[in-house]
């Protein structure tokens, strides 16, 4: 338990403080590409703060599950964040086999968001729930294959050790498969957090949405908690991608943290670039692409096993 209370505080500070900033950066990059000024960096902070203060309007057909959706949506990313290292800051909790808990934790949030969507009884939420549940079912094998490759390289089964110091050394030994996993993890992050190639976060056409349409009926503090949870989830998965991409540790804690934050912002810019360059894929192509990605990650494992 080499984690000290300071590191835990730093961990939570990064989680709560930094997560809304990423969507601000993405918004700014897309605006830059589109030649417009775009919303300020801190737009999401203001939205969440505003929503926490507003009143609540809920549908007559809903039950307690509708109110439980946002609660789980907020609690799950916080707990997931405790399991993974933020750059140099080690994971507060790490035990052998926590990757399984990590994956099924996100399963819990998916379960409640889908049920909350179905609770309103409207066809749009139903559509969103079906898509969310079906596509995530294809993404899970990819996550597991990524974790197996890392477990095989690091020799341990806890996320903290997998994304820990051994990562830098393994880049030299198994660079090609690590590169493949990086791509796969990046795509999974895009799928899970409703970014452009798979889902359009700020579209208004319900037929094309996946995540947005599920939260259509939420309002006030509930909507705030959902947006904040989504941002934190984006940060958690982003942290994994960045950790994979920048395994270097310079020994000085402050410099490493700055490097980590820079990596995150750079990733946000990359996603912003992708979103402005690509359009949303047709809905039927997404399962094929997801299966392709899981085969890719499986192939990277074969590269390793050879």
């Amino acid at each position: 338990m080499r984690i000290t209370i300071l590191q835990l505080f730093l961990h939570l500070l990064l989680l709560f403080g930094l997560s809304p900033l990423l969507s601000g950066v993405i918004g700014k990059t897309k605006a830059l590409f589109a030649g417009r000024v775009g919303p300020p960096f801190l737009q999401l902070y203001f939205d969440i703060w505003k929503l926490f203060g507003k009143g609540l309007v809920i549908s007559r057909t809903t039950t307690w599950i509708f109110r439980a959706g946002p609660v789980v949506g907020l609690a799950v990313p916080v707990l997931a964040a405790l399991l993974i290292p933020f750059g140099p800051v080690g994971a507060p909790i790490s035990f052998s086999g926590d990757l399984i808990f990590f994956v099924y934790l996100f399963g819990l949030s998916r379960f409640f968001t889908a049920c909350a969507a179905l609770d309103t009884g409207s066809s749009f939420e139903g559509m969103g729930a079906v898509r969310e549940v079906t596509f995530s079912c294809l993404a899970e094998p990819t996550v597991f294959f990524v974790f197996i490759v890392l477990a095989r390289l690091s020799g341990s089964f806890s996320l903290d050790a997998m994304f820990g110091p051994t990562l830098a050394a393994s880049w030299h030994t198994a660079a090609p498969s690590l590169l493949l996993i990086l791509v796969c993890l990046f795509i999974v992050t895009l799928v899970e957090n409703c970014r452009i190639p798979f889902d359009d976060p700020n579209t208004h056409l319900e037929l094309t949405m996946i995540h947005e349409v599920m939260v259509l009926d939420h309002s006030g503090p509930d909507l705030g908690m959902i947006l904040y949870g989504a941002a934190m989830k984006f940060l958690v998965l982003g942290a994994l991608v960045v950790r994979l991409f920048l395994p270097v540790t310079t020994g000085n804690i402050a410099l490493d943290i700055l490097l980590f934050i820079g990596g995150l912002l750079f990733m946000a810019v990359v996603i912003g670039v992708i979103e402005s360059v690509m359009a949303r894929l047709r809905l039927l192509r997404i399962p094929q692409l997801l299966v392709g990605v899981s085969l890719l990650s499986f192939f990277s494992l074969i590269l390793l096993l050879r």
Partner: peptide
């Protein structure tokens, strides 16, 4: 820990919603 986190989030939700009024309407 998960149950603790859920309770915390739930109490936060109740705290924030406490002051605002809850109106019921038909699904959008």
């Amino acid at each position: 820990l998960l149950i603790g986190a859920l309770l915390a989030a739930f109490s936060f939700n109740r705290w924030r919603q406490g002051r605002a009024t809850v109106a019921a309407a038909s699904t959008w």
